[in-house]
Amino acid sequence: MQKEISKKKIVVKDLNLFYGEFHALKAINMDIYEGEVTALIGPSGCGKSTFLKTLNRMNDLVEHVRVTGSITLDGNEILSDVDVVALRKRVGMVFQKPNPFPMSIYDNVAYGPRIHGIKKKSQLDEIVEKSLRAAALWDEVSDRLSKSALGISGGQQQRLCIARTLATEPEVLLMDEPTSALDPISTSKIEELCETLKKNYTIVIVTHNMQQAGRISDRTAFFLLGELVEYDLTERIFHRPRNEKTERYITGRFG
């Protein structure tokens, strides 16, 4: 299998996370490979979203969170002294519910580049167009870039959020159930998008939808009660899971 020799982008070692007394992630070890789509699956409350948010330190925003262990990005530790702003520029995130800012479509996409110091209009124009094209949204909104982002459909808003994230030129794209609030057509558009985006980005996606994980991911990790039960190539997880719990979950017997 050619996949197995691709480069390790993120290496997670012995990761534990506590919300106060609650032990939310238990001794997670996991390698995430460059240029692949990695799916995180598991029932609600299993820790998959929490895990995702440790990868760009968004858990810092929650009070009483304690993290131990190690996560490296291209070999550099990100849990201890790291510039969180620089980290989040490299590791972008798309949320469950589309959350465009209450400003124009253009300003939404230009937001990231602007805060990172790009001021030239021509350069911003270029980034906005490139990002919107990469998010397969350009053709639908190119004639109303100055209109409010809150006026487009939910599916378009989610692709706008992807474009907004791409505009800061991240290397890794984290997606937290990006299609759970969308209709089937928008969902399939986002799934196709993942397929094209993985050529240039490493994607980690949390999903509740088993078929979705099967369709779009190269590897799948199954979480249960804060533990990483099984992690393997998606094909193997879906056809020959080694763990009985994994099998029961993906065949829909619990969750």
């Binding site: 980290l87 989040r88 972008g92 949320f95 800012f101 209450p102 937001y111 805060i115 907004r164 994230t165």
Partner: peptide, 27 residues
């Protein structure tokens, strides 16, 4: 102000002050 704006801004690598002035205060 919708907390998801705050999250979205911080996730793009904005500092808290940038988030405050560009997203939260205008809303």
């Amino acid at each position: 102000v919708n907390p998801s704006y705050r999250e979205g801004s911080l996730a793009l690598g904005a500092t808290r002050l940038q988030t405050l002035f560009k997203v939260i205060l205008p809303s």
